[in-house]
Design a protein around this nucleic acid. Structure first.
Lengths: 156, 156
DNA sequence: CTAGGGTGTAATCTGTTTAGTTACATCAGG
DNA sequence: CCTGATGTAACTAAACAGATTACACCCTAG
């Protein structure tokens, strides 16, 4: 597992909510989402909390509580989701400060920062091309194909 | 520190070798590079090993041994370096397999894989825009600026 | 042809991070 | 109120990266 599965979990939860939303506008519980993602409800709640702060989902407390998309899935891009759940940059700098007595040690971080900023912008632009609605369509298509192929695939 | 400082360390080492190369074509030891990066020589050797396998640097063993760029720095892009040193994808999937009884659980990974492939291509295209020669120029410019500003900055 | 400085790499230690889990305070609807 | 859910703190466990030690191996200078 790579360091960050947070975007995956958040996208999974949102796709789930988008699917539910097609049938009703009810709130869905963290427990049900966790059952689909196959993790603990608290992990889902942590992700939901960030998505709530970003205005992507609405949370209802009290009895009959749960969570649902705050907006149509067509208006939610993976870039927004990424910004909501990611807190570490893709590439990190030195674990220990490089030698400041060396020109390379002194100039490397500013120089790389520019490159990494460009990479970050490219990543976010690419993620902006996919909405939760797009994702749900692709998810259902993939699930359908795997259902058809299932008899031939391993049952694990 | 974010998960991956490997690209940073490799770029630092290559910038150093590019700088040395401007004055002579001698081999430089992992110990000297480590002193600039401020880490252990073994960490540098591990990075060098991958760069050697990728044909980016040449390593000479025996007495007076060390390592140098195998090609002009203008011909080495950060994309090559990234490909040489990275082994984990940027985004990971679920830690535990999602619920295969749920359409979303079954279709989410193939759907996200397409998105993540696109992101990976975008990252590498962005990194391809910078060569080690470009980086060195920027490193030296940044080091120069920080030298001028040094009297006002903290001496830590 | 040997002495010595360097690479290559395995093994281990340590610190950090993240997912997983438990526990519990809090919040509304019925 | 009671109930079923969220919000969050606290802790555990596992994975991972970097740091370090140790040592086999290599090659060139002398």
């Amino acid at each position: 597992m790579a360091a960050n599965s947070r975007l995956t979990v958040a996208a999974h939860a949102l796709a789930w909510m988008a699917l539910v939303r097609r049938n009703s506008d009810e709130y869905v519980t963290s427990e049900r989402i966790a059952a689909s993602v196959n993790t603990n409800p608290v992990v889902i709640r942590r992700a939901i909390g960030r998505l709530r702060d970003a205005g992507i989902v609405e949370v209802q407390r009290g009895a009959g509580a749960g969570c649902r998309l705050a907006r149509p899935p067509e208006s939610i891009t993976l870039r927004e989701v990424y910004d909501a759940v990611a807190d570490e940059p893709l590439f990190g700098f030195h674990a220990r400060r490089p030698n400041q007595g060396c020109p390379v040690g002194r100039g490397i971080q500013p120089a790389l920062a520019k490159v990494y900023d460009g990479v970050d912008a490219a990543v976010r632009a690419e993620l902006a091309r996919t909405t939760i609605a797009d994702l749900l369509i692709d998810v259902l298509a993939s699930a359908w194909r795997s259902t058809v192929a299932e008899p031939a695939s391993d049952p694990a």
